[in-house]
Amino acid sequence: MEKQLIISVGREFGSGGHAIAELLAKRFDLPLYDSNLLEEIAERKSLNVKHLEKYDEIPKNRLFSRNVMGYSNSPEEAIANLQFDYLRQKADSGASFIIVGRCAEEVLKGNPALTTIFVLGDMEAKVARIMELYQVSEQKAENIVVSTNKKRKNYHNYYCTKQWGDSRNYELSINSSRLGLIATADIIEDYIRRKMNLNK
């Protein structure tokens, strides 16, 4: 790919946002970063990735952390900032990639190569997807969807000035329940390619 392209995919749990990001990564031939971002950071900084994963996409615990002279002792905040810095450096280097979550729509805001997407879904469809993926009951799946989305919202809203899932924060918000994952990816791909043609 000649021109830099960065696609940020925010998503509700159960919406299939990650699967859609994988489809887009194949169609645009781009590396996809999600939890594997921590593996690269751990390798670069000689850290234990298992230790980092415990604090991934979790907001700062206010009860057990404090700031001293502008520095926080919160491992959650340290991990978040490691990822944010890594994304900025990667974007500034001219690299093209897809990033899932990690507040990327705000962390990379202002980068002309950035396209921001948010994938949502109907509760019934999200629950059905989680039931199938994790082989759990309907009630268990609903509990997982609600609790995971609450965690994502809390994480995002702690580190960002804009609210998680607010359509005004993204170029395109789309409900994957309407047409399914492949057709949703088709629409997003078409949007990005049209945008790229406009910016030639």
Results as ranks from 00 to 15, higher is better:
G94W: 11
A78Y: 06
E138C: 07
E138P: 02
D85A: 07
L82I: 00
A125G: 04
M131Q: 15
A104W: 05
T116Q: 13
I98P: 06
G101T: 08
A113E: 01
Q139V: 09
I117T: 14
V127T: 05
A128D: 11
Y86K: 00
R129M: 09
V107E: 07
L108W: 05
Y134M: 12
V107T: 05
G110T: 10
L108G: 09
E138R: 15
D85V: 11
K109W: 10
A104M: 07
V107I: 14
P112E: 12
G101M: 02
A95T: 06
S93V: 05
N81K: 14
F97N: 04
I99D: 03
L82F: 10
I98W: 00
G121L: 12
E124I: 07
R129G: 10
E105R: 11
T116H: 06
L108P: 06
L108V: 09
G121H: 10
N111M: 11
C103Y: 03
A91C: 05
P112K: 10
D92Y: 01
L108H: 08
V107K: 02
A113D: 01
K109L: 14
L120F: 00
E132C: 05
L114T: 10
R129P: 03
L114N: 07
N111Y: 13
I117E: 09
D122H: 05
D122Y: 03
S96D: 08
K140H: 08
M131D: 05
E105A: 12
I98Y: 00
F84W: 04
Q83V: 09
Q135V: 02
I99V: 15
Y134A: 07
L133W: 14
A125H: 02
N81Q: 14
L114V: 12
C103V: 08
L114H: 11
C103T: 10
G110M: 11
